[in-house]
Nucleic acid binder design. Structure first.
Length: 637
DNA sequence: AGACTTTAAGGGATGTTAAG
DNA sequence: CTTAACATCCCTTAAAGTCT
């Protein structure tokens, strides 16, 4: 037995009046053959609420049909749904044990690592102590050996100095001896002098010859004695020199001793201590690194458990990630993977569906921005383009402002190409934007969609027939909703009345109505004043009207390709003729294809009108364009 | 080249939970 | 009780990839 939605909602409404909380379930159990205990109450209530909400939006036949649909009662599932992102209560019990065991495991691991750290620390301390004692021993041994060496060296030096001093004393002694000898010699000399005097006296007394002989002998001995003295003196000088040399050597030795002492002092500097310090630093760094490893993998809060929603930052992150064409399925894993780089783990990661919902938010935000910023922009330009894909046609609407910033208004698929449909789409998009900005609309008199519409100054379109019609419709639409708006158009019609020629109108439009605002406008205004440009334009327009457009119509008709031959031939002969004299082309009296194919409209009317000064130039241009050489060069391209 | 499978994406229906 | 926020399941389609 099954119950309808109408009955289900009826029971639900009645149950609200009851105080008995069991009323709802027992009633449902009665009406269907489902067991009372099997019913999932929360799901049932949630479902009923949803159906009520749904029913509100339905009227008439639709409502009736919906009410009569079968209502299936949610039944408690024996196996709880295994959720990936969140844990539910019944699961919690099963997970609790594993979690606690995991936690104890983790804490044990942590304890172990802490113990390890302690062990490492104590090891380091022991090592440091060992190194210190080693260093001390080394230092002591070094000092001992060095001091021994020093002592032996000083001993040697002392011995040497002793020797040197002994030598010098010897030299001194010798010197003194020599001096004594010298004294003796001097004394002897004196004695000899006395003797000499005595002898002289004797000589005086004795014979002169004998005396002289004796004197001579004496002189000889004197000279020899003198030589002896001088020799002694020389020896003394040499000894003196030796003495000074030895003194110099002594000085040198003393200096070397000093140097050795300095060296010894330098050797006393404690080098190994520095090494030890470096070792200690690296050890502490290693320890800190290990410690930081223990502290890492901190959780990052992406999902606010209090608000039960992802944080705004996370939402923005998701929006930005989807901007890079990451599929909604992969946004979660991408976030996880990137956080790994920073050694963090997210507390939750959105599923595909949630990401999809956030993408919808993104679009809403974009439209809100459009309403607020574009609505305030003056002088905007509307673009439109058609895209076709898989047999469906889509119409895009773009808007650019003064700063050349382009905004994307929206995209809709078109059921048909009619201009009215395009307008409907556009109005639909503007309505959407207005709806999004609902809260702001209450304060404004005009909606944001309307302000966007009223600020559109230009409409850029390809020359597709639809777009021309669309432009007209758009104008009408604007006049409908904004009667004060059409100032520009009124002025334009004034310009239209005063001139009959099209380029005059363009001139008037830029000079009187619109004003040449940008480079393109200025250029157009300048060119439109040049006669040869106008002549070219006339030729191009006529080519389109008389040759290209009819040719298109022919090609698009159901004619067989082979049957086109005659038409191509007539076109060629026509072009050949016109290259010699193209007056008939300019006046629009002659054309290559059947008359029916030429569309007679305002445009053609204006084009074939005679223009003083322009026609002869146009004639020349046309003949140039249709000449065989020119056509050949076209075909090559 | 065609058959078959996988992946990304859209969308509806509905269960779960906790705050209002 | 209502409702928001998130989740899951299911179905569908287009496009890309793989196999035969």
């Amino acid at each position: 037995m099954s119950i309808t939605i109408k009955l289900a909602i009826d029971i639900f409404n009645r149950s609200k009046l009851q105080t008995d909380s069991d009323f709802l379930i027992s009633n449902f159990a009665e009406c269907s053959d489902v067991d009372k205990t099997q019913i999932n109450k929360a799901a049932l209530i949630s479902k009923l609420h949803r159906y009520k909400e749904k029913l509100k939006g339905k009227r008439g036949k639709q409502k009736e049909e919906f009410e009569n649909e079968v209502f299936s009662i949610p039944v408690a599932t024996s196996t709880s749904t295994a959720s990936k992102g969140k844990l539910y209560k019944d699961e919690l019990y099963s997970y609790k044990e594993t979690c606690t065991s995991l936690a104890t495991e983790m804490s044990e691991i942590q304890k172990k690592s802490v113990e390890k750290l302690v062990v490492i620390k104590s090891e380091h301390a022991v090592k440091i102590k060992e190194n210190e004692s080693k260093h001390k021993q080394e230092l002591l041994s070094l000092k001992k050996t060095q001091s021994e060496e020093l002592q032996s060296q000083t001993k040697r030096l002392r011995l040497e100095t002793k020797r040197v001093s002994q030598k010098t004393s010897k030299v001194y002694n010798e010197n003194e001896k020599l001096l004594e000898q010298l004294k003796v010699i001097k004394k002897s000399k004196q004695l000899i002098c006395y003797e000499n005097i005595l002898l002289r006296r004797k000589l005086e007394r004795c014979s002169i010859i004998k005396e002289t002989q004796k004197q001579k002998n004496l002189e000889k001995t004197l000279i020899s004695e003198k030589n002896k003295v001088s020799n002694c003196l020389r020896e003394i000088e040499v000894l003196k020199q030796n003495n000074s040399k030895l003194l110099y050597q002594l000085e040198k030795e003393e200096r070397t001793v000093l140097e050795q002492n300095n060296k010894l002092q330098l050797l006393d500097q404690p080098d190994p201590l520095l090494n030890l310090k470096v070792q200690l630093q690296t050890a502490t760094e290693e320890r800190d690194y290990l410690h930081s490893l223990l502290l890492d993998h901190e959780e990052i809060i992406l999902f606010d458990p209090v608000k039960k929603s992802y944080t705004p930052d996370t939402r923005q992150c998701i929006m930005n990630i989807t901007n890079f064409n990451v599929s909604s399925n992969n946004v979660g894993p991408v976030i996880k993977e990137v956080l790994k780089l920073a050694n963090r783990t997210p507390n939750a990661v959105p599923t595909r569906k949630t990401v999809d919902n956030i993408i919808v938010e993104k679009i809403a935000i974009g439209q809100k921005q459009l309403g607020l910023t574009v609505g305030a922009q003056q002088d905007t330009c509307l673009y439109g383009d058609e895209t076709r894909n898989f047999g469906k046609t889509y119409q895009t609407f773009l808007l650019s402002d003064d700063n050349k910033q382009v905004y994307f208004l929206g995209l809709r698929d078109m059921h048909d190409k009619a201009a009215s449909a395009t307008l409907d789409m556009f109005a639909n998009i503007l309505d959407d934007i207005s709806d999004i900005c609902e809260t702001y609309r209450n304060n404004d008199i005009t909606s944001h969609g309307h302000s966007i519409l009223s600020n559109i100054r230009n409409f850029m379109s390809d020359r597709a027939q639809t777009n021309i019609a669309f432009t007209e419709l758009l104008q009408n639409y604007r006049t409908e909703i904004m009667p004060t708006f059409l100032q520009n158009w009124n002025e334009l019609t004034i310009g239209e009345q005063t001139s009959t020629v099209k380029h005059e109108r363009i001139k008037a439009f830029f000079e009187i109505v619109h004003g040449a605002n940008n480079k393109l406008h200025k250029l157009t205004l300048q060119l439109v004043k040049k006669q040869y440009i106008l002549a070219c334009c006339k030729v191009l327009g006529l080519i389109s009207k008389l040759i290209t457009a009819p040719l298109w119509r022919l090609i698009e008709s159901n004619m067989h390709v082979l049957d086109m031959n005659t038409n191509y031939l007539s076109l060629l002969t026509y072009l050949d003729r016109m290259s010699k004299d193209s007056t008939d082309f300019i006046t629009g009296e002659e054309f290559p294809f059947p008359k029916e194919l030429v569309e007679k409209d305002k445009m053609l009317e204006k084009l074939v009108q005679a223009n003083e000064g322009i026609d002869d130039k146009a004639c020349a241009f046309a003949q140039l364009a249709f000449s065989k050489d020119c056509i050949k060069s076209w075909l090559k391209q």
